[in-house]
Design a binder for these strands. Structure first.
Lengths: 340, 340
DNA sequence: TTGTACGCGTTATCAT
DNA sequence: ATGATAACGCGTACAA
């Protein structure tokens, strides 16, 4: 047992060792492994059997150098303080990893805030990755700007006006629009909107969906019950406070994070959901499952977006043509929180 | 502006290009960059200035091949379904990444369940990393077993009886012990314990702390109010149900996840905390911040454990001697949930 | 102090 | 179908 392991680890084999042992040349071994180039089926099997028995594995660095390919991709994550309550990015990450693994790629994580491109530069300059996934897309995105100039393949999760970008996103716009339409058709009269971080395209799209959803129902946007600059819990609760003085009968939250705060604040004030106020969220997460009342929300398959982004990226890397924009489906879950 | 970028990207430079342009040899350039080997200060500056101006960066694969070092480390994460409500691992990951970045290392993530070592084998066999961090430690850990045989440097987050392992952990034992002592000293009479997953060493240590905390106060463990095999929400609520029939006046939860369920179930049953039942948790997370009542808990700096684990690993990789076991401090936060 | 020459382990080109 | 041989770009003994 022990000696068996020792045996295998007698310093790593190379294709030359394999070649010598089999009385063939190194290039033959290489061909047998890669499948590239013509090779006799018999010798191929012989080589494969041998490397399997001796558990030989090609050296990644050497292959990397020879092919100018790293078999690594990077995923760019927002900075830590944002992440604690935001499982979205991590779920994405795991989706991407799943696809990467299957394709013999490894996933390398890079955390950075919205403006610091240093970590990306290092990756690119040192050629440590073959491509990148941007998990977040800003309005005038410095990462995008940088990556475009480098020419390295990358896909962004989100929506951009630049139709040359390769993006993967949930249909936030369509989802919010349909959600608003639905709420209004059920008899809700006045839907307020609570959001923040309008420099992120996802939030822009949701707000646009909200606006067009109202329009579909022949309603105009009432800017006095629209908040698009909430960045802290306190601001959210203050907004709720103000809304309570109006005739608003439903609060649409840009995301689960804001929704969480809204629900808490309403509970604190003794306002019952949905009797005195309806609540809905443009994004679902486990956060919303912890309330006594179930919350109407848009549901997206977050893992799937990670998978898809990675798949598209790998396609780009291998030179295949890919769709510029990919839009993934949404699901509307009507729950108690908007019951009339 | 545009031409400037084009200029830089005229196919990547090599040390030979730099050498030629400066009228020196490639090895001189190499020395200037690495700092290894004697080199004239003047030429060193000249080289450094040039590569800085032309923004030359050494090719990672080539360096990797020459040095047999990848400047990558991997962090092994538990499988996805466990993760959604467990920010611990992701926070660790970001801590590790922070330290890795500073040391010019990159972090590669690998997700796998407790038994599948295939993904690790690929990493090791292909020599894609210089070391690994295990974020979880099982009683008879197959990963540990495998990694020990390969000889690759690795550090495990958790506690092991095998004192040859290099581990980094919070002082779960000491924390739980002190917490229990404290609760009892405040007048609490009967502390029940709710836990699960005893194949993970962290949970074993917490339970041991609980036991010894009782002992410190001269109390014996009452196994009828101890649950160490709860793996689902339903099981947790059933356990709570049974405890309510006893004279238990405080429930100590193994982690935030279990605590979350306990608090919810008590609320559902109309049992008020802390009046009718005290509650404490051996692990704090944001999960506990969402309750109307603040929860007494042990608090660990999760990011710090990731940082520390990474630092120790990097030390091992560079051949420095490291402490076998590192124990990080805990903090006891006494809150409303255990108020007498 | 600096340059030469070779090795790291693969892939790819060109013969055979 | 297979085998030499030359890259790939960097590090490093050894020589000068």
């Amino acid at each position: 047992m022990d000696s068996l392991n020792k045996d295998q680890s007698k310093e790593n084999l190379t294709i030359h060792d394999v070649a010598k042992a089999l009385g063939v040349s190194a290039s033959t071994v290489s061909r047998a492994i890669s499948g590239k180039g013509r090779i006799g089926e018999e010798t191929r099997q012989r080589v494969l059997a041998y490397i399997n028995e001796k558990s030989f594995y090609p050296n990644a660095s050497a292959r990397s150098l020879a092919q100018s390919k790293t078999y690594n991709i990077a995923i760019i994550m927002p900075e830590v303080r944002d992440l604690v309550d935001m499982p979205f990015f991590h779920t994405c990450m795991h989706g991407a990893e799943e696809v990467a693994q299957v394709n013999d790629y490894d996933l390398l994580i890079v955390t950075t805030d919205g403006s610091n491109i240093k970590p990306l530069e290092r990756m690119v300059n040192n050629r440590k990755v073959d491509g990148m996934i941007l998990t977040r897309l800003y309005k005038d995105d410095v990462f995008v700007e940088y990556l475009k100039n480098t020419g390295i393949p990358f896909v962004a999760i989100g929506n951009s006006e630049d139709k040359n970008l390769v993006t993967v996103d949930h249909d936030n716009y369509g989802g919010c629009r349909e959600l608003v339409s639905l709420l209004l058709s059920k008899g809700i009269k006045k839907v307020a909107y609570l959001g923040g971080g309008m420099e992120q395209t996802v939030n822009i799209r949701r707000y646009e969906g909200y606006k067009d959803g109202l329009e579909d129902a022949g309603k105009a946007v009432d800017t006095s019950i629209v908040y698009t600059n909430l960045t802290s819990k306190i601001q959210v609760s203050k907004a709720v406070e103000e809304l309570l003085k109006t005739t608003t009968d439903c609060i649409l939250c840009q995301d689960d994070y804001i929704c969480d705060e809204v629900v808490h604040h309403l509970a604190e004030k003794g306002i019952s959901i949905p009797k005195q106020m309806k609540v809905a969220s443009c994004h679902h997460s486990k956060l919303l499952d912890n309330f006594p009342v179930t919350i109407t929300s848009l549901k997206f398959d977050t893992m799937e977006i990670g998978r898809k982004a990675c798949q598209v990226l790998l396609d780009m890397i291998s030179g295949e043509s890919v769709d510029r924009q990919t839009l993934l489906e949404y699901e509307i879950n009507l729950k108690e929180s908007t019951k009339m």
